[in-house]
Design a binder for these strands. Structure first.
Lengths: 339, 339
DNA sequence: ATATAGTATGGTAACGATACCATATGGGAT
DNA sequence: ATCCCATATGGTATCGTTACCATACTATAT
């Protein structure tokens, strides 16, 4: 069981004042090496543990950061946001309290109240997919930063994925491999930053490489079967694509299936690149999927660092989505030579 | 910004003693309705928020539960353990502090020390895959429960998936559909509770249905390509399986691919069932995968409830893995009729 | 009338740490 | 010799809350 000694006990044992013990605890100057050592020894011998509640009460700093998140079961991999936040917090000796909430305002408001009672020094709000959020007013009681989302009125600093550049990269790797007919099955729902940004990136890459945009090559996908059908539709075009850019790694699964059923091999006959780098999916597709990384970890870390920096500038940070190359892309020329 | 009023301010405004305010705050008896209302009003008007640090200091109860977990990036869906723990904690007005650690003892020990300093009332240790864990001695300083793992010497209560019954169910649904040749590609690494338990469940189901166990029908899989090859090997047997039981949903991805490449349709020509119910995978396979649910949420919730129950009996709770039926299984007879 | 128990209320001492103030010592500069 | 400043040390008030004790008032039982 946990013996609970206090600094008084330590002070007595080390034959010093409590103030000196406190100084040792907080690495303050003006303690002789000799006494410092005596205190350290005493703490060691008694297995002393600070009562952070008392410390916090006196010094009005809890070392707690609230982490609010909406939970959407279909994108479980976004835990990395939490990991990133955690690691960034740990760098500053802080802890994160995670609270999941549904989407409605009163519930979020209550959760914020809950966190404020615990004297959190700041709140991170993280969304499981990139979107706009509307937060209750009581959030302004405490420094706040957003991860994977942004506020309607741009009143809060936020970290979001740079969807456009990511999609640009995904398209570019195909373009560089010589593909000019690139099918793009975009994520839905419509008008989300992901859908819009990825389409812009795709178009910009095309335009940079002098390839005209062909409306026919664009599909959308919400669930697997739909995506399978869209892939088939593109394949049946009179001038079909030689490569696919799949809006998410998950939808790439159905694209792979449709390709297999059409007797097409990836990447020999047709190249594919995804988006998200959802590793359990990307690594279990055969061949492994070349894709673009959603920077979950970085967004979480950025938000916490922003909070703790004390810098109040409200910015939206677009975080890079690097390309992760695996085996699903091959050069168009070599395809012709091989077949 | 957060005004920080104290119960003294409330007391003054409501014209009562601080004790009365405290009583209202904690729902103690012996406060007249009239004064209670005055206090409530005052709190409302001043937007009062308790300082939980002070409360905790005085009453020696923090309402904090430590949640320790090893992080393995490949199984991100185990977040559900955290969700379950969180919800169970919320039922008792507690919060969870999540700390991720690597696997080595000193690091875990340090993390426990970290949690103890924050006066957690208990610690949950959760593993990302079902396994035996070895925990440092300082964990005994505080009530502990394990989720998705168990301790070497069975000295701690734990919740684990009932792998055997789960695998029994997966096999049974195939057996009930008339399949007698069932290929089983088991998870690795060897000698894990998952591998052993699932094999036992498979064998027991076979035996219950009077089907002899055929060593040839067993494969193992570690990564996608390996699993693809194992599937092919089984397909080339002179008496090949008409159904597959895939050790995890992820490996089912490669099995589906191998089946497609062999010109076999799921479920018309061959049935498949998985294990884990990793929804992002199961729902993006075509047809959607029938599988068995790993009870992450329930394990997390069980562990917290066990902690808070105060009941010190050390038990290992095997939690049920229910079958989730989707579209990847069909009756063998109908196969013959159709083809 | 008086004892007794339940209800209602407030004052004050903790909880364990740190902030602040007071004090002491030992050089180096004047 | 005196002053000043950096270093070193400890006592004590204090943070915001609850536990504990003391005190009243009321209603019922004796």
């Amino acid at each position: 069981m946990g013996n609970n000694y206090t600094i008084k006990d330590i002070a007595k044992r080390a034959q010093v004042g409590t103030t000196t013990v406190s100084r040792v605890l907080n690495n303050h100057p003006y303690v002789s090496d000799e006494k410092r050592q005596r205190v350290l020894n005493a703490m060691d011998e008694l297995n002393y543990r600070q009562n952070l509640g008392a410390k916090w009460l006196r010094s009005a700093s809890t070392g707690l950061i609230g982490f609010l998140t909406d939970e959407v079961a279909t994108t479980p991999y976004a835990v990395d946001i939490i990991r990133g936040a955690q690691d960034a917090a740990a760098e500053n000796d802080m802890v994160i309290i995670v609270v999941s909430v549904g989407g409605d305002l009163p519930e979020i408001e209550e959760a914020i109240e809950f966190l404020l009672e615990r004297q959190v020094m700041g709140i991170i709000y993280a969304a499981m997919y990139h979107r706009e959020v509307h937060l209750p007013d009581n959030i302004t009681n405490v420094p706040t930063a957003l991860a994977n989302c942004f506020s309607v009125d741009a009143s809060l600093p936020s970290a979001v994925p740079d969807e456009e550049t990511g999609a640009y990269r995904a398209t570019k790797v195909l373009l560089e491999a010589g593909h000019t007919r690139i099918g793009f099955i975009n994520v839905i729902p419509p008008s989300t930053p992901a859908m819009n940004g990825r389409l812009r990136g795709y178009q910009r890459a095309l335009s940079d490489y002098g390839i005209p945009f062909d409306e026919q090559l664009i599909g959308t996908s919400d669930f697997a079967l739909h995506n399978y059908n869209e892939t088939q539709r593109l394949l049946n075009l009179k001038n079909p694509p030689t490569a696919f850019f799949s809006g998410t790694d998950r939808t790439a699964m159905a694209t792979y299936a449709a390709l297999r059923d059409a007797g097409l091999r990836v990447p020999e006959d047709i190249s594919v690149v995804g988006f998200d780098n959802q590793i359990d999916v990307a690594l279990n597709l055969l061949p492994n999927l070349t894709t673009v990384q959603l920077p979950h970890y970085e967004m979480g870390a950025w938000a916490v660092r922003k909070l703790l920096s004390g810098d109040n500038e409200i910015i939206q940070e677009k975080i890079d989505c690097p390309l992760v190359e695996r085996q699903s892309v091959s050069v168009l020329d070599s395809v012709n030579i091989q077949s």
